[in-house]
Design a protein around this nucleic acid. Sequence first.
DNA 1: TTGTAGGCGTTATCAG
DNA 2: CTGATAACGCCTACAA
Lengths: 343, 343
Amino acid sequence: MERITIIDIAKMCGVGVTTVSRAINNHPDINEETKMMIMKVIKENHYIPNNSARNLKRAASKTIAVLIKGITNPFFNTMIKVFEEEIKRKKYSFFLQRVDENQDEIDVAIELEKEKRLKGIVFLGGYFSHSKEKLTQLTVPFVLSTIGMAEDVEPNDYSSVSVDDFKESYKLVDYLCSLGHTKIATITANLEDVSIGKLRFEGYKKALADHGVDYNADLVWHMKEDIESYTMENGYVVTKELLASKEEFTALYAISDSLAIGACKALLEAGKRVPEDYSVAGFDGLDISFYYNPSITTMKQPVGEIAQETIKILFDLINKKITHAHKTFPAELMVRESTRSLL
Amino acid sequence: MERITIIDIAKMCGVGVTTVSRAINNHPDINEETKMMIMKVIKENHYIPNNSARNLKRAASKTIAVLIKGITNPFFNTMIKVFEEEIKRKKYSFFLQRVDENQDEIDVAIELEKEKRLKGIVFLGGYFSHSKEKLTQLTVPFVLSTIGMAEDVEPNDYSSVSVDDFKESYKLVDYLCSLGHTKIATITANLEDVSIGKLRFEGYKKALADHGVDYNADLVWHMKEDIESYTMENGYVVTKELLASKEEFTALYAISDSLAIGACKALLEAGKRVPEDYSVAGFDGLDISFYYNPSITTMKQPVGEIAQETIKILFDLINKKITHAHKTFPAELMVRESTRSLL
DNA sequence: TTGTAGGCGTTATCAG
DNA sequence: CTGATAACGCCTACAA
């Protein structure tokens, strides 16, 4: 099968390559009729321009890439949809790239920026702890969406949109305390975690402290390293161990809804009732937290708004209206069936 | 910020571009020392080769693309992971591309094939009804994984791996009947559906017929068009309508687990018990079907095996061991808490 | 409105 | 082992 190129089309049409190029790219300087004719020939011969060649030649394309780390996260789907809509509305094209858990997203971004002549980048998920030097290798505007940042990164070096994980986590545990719970177990990230896992855990500790509840390390359980993190399975397994430990508790705070659901399952399987025997709360506000039985009390992240604001900031950056921006949205406490008052 | 190219690197190293190229691509014909030196300069200057230029020049790359339609489907994640592992194990690189619901996957594939010089393609999800003419525009091997095919497409024109949706759906409904259920409502696809939705529905009808149960159109409910299909929300809304209709039934078969969960929620909210008042069954075998309360009886698709076989066939195609192949895996009936016997 | 020719950054060829 | 140089397929001055 011969590769058919723009030159072939030009020959078939008896015109120059320029004209064909113009027909393809909706260039104004072209006769409508010849354009029609060319397009017809193109269709008939199933000619498709080679993107590599285009990108190579083009000085800049109007495309925005979204790099997503940990495609597992269920609420990314919603965000991606919003990104796509907003980007298309601005007449830019949209490119989604998954980046592996153990890949450096900045490296991927740099490569992609050159390859596709990107106008902007959105980083979704994962954890950022790159040096300023690395960050400045990115020559196009970028925004971090729902991403944990290392504390030592200069806020002036990047833009971000997210929820205040510390504060919102605090609110949730505060709510649990206000229901009279004092023995609140938690399923949280590993100790080395420095991202949202840590923030949510800090919120937990602070809330307990503010309620005069002594911190009890025996109530703190970490996700299993050998199971994918933040999954139902992880919550399930950890909760089984928690139960087996005979440690007393009246409420369980899992730092994600998926963990919470796994926890509920483990509780229910052990013949316990939720919330009669144990209150359970999650975090994120996934759809399933509503559909689960019992429905799960959680902090709902305003994913749509986060996504929208991300794009807004990105375009402000592109249009040089701003040099950087940080926006945090409040999460919403969804009080549902899985928690009850002890008072 | 100046774009730095291979030529710049060559100059800085005092060597020719060829040598630099060799260093980058691990070509054997190069002195280890000069290679070291060049790599060092590359690192220091953060030089990154331009992929567009590479793809343009390269005759063929060793990359396999996976085109996925409807990223929403939760079990695709598992499959993607397997694809990635298997492809990397074969020393090929892996490229994942999402294709929009209303985009023609073949068009995307053709474009990508040229751009990236693909060696093979996996199509995941969606529905296929392309003409032979269209299919043959694809000059590289491809395999359809978990995809519904129109009946009029020549099996010799493509390869596929999936579950027999008709047969497995039949088995599930057969099981429901064997529990003594005769009034089995179903939440299914729209009438125009010609893909897995139709197949599963046909399986439902056949099973009823074989058990001598009269087909009752009033028990057949279709997903809402204005809500994303196969979602919990869709199952939830439809089931509310079903309940409001006062139509009598003892079991509900939703053609996906997500629909089934939405259905359960609607039932539970209405004060009904599952399975005491209504048995509920789903299809797919998602993780959540196990974690839900009650756990959902379902047909579990062997997603890992399907993914593995997909890659195996793809490489057989690439190595010209075969010209096409079709493989169907059996699904596994998972009898769980959401269904009960009437006998 | 149309065509010619040069170059985008790499890799492959082929001669040193 | 190394280095010019010609493609790869397209876009875009510039000239016609």
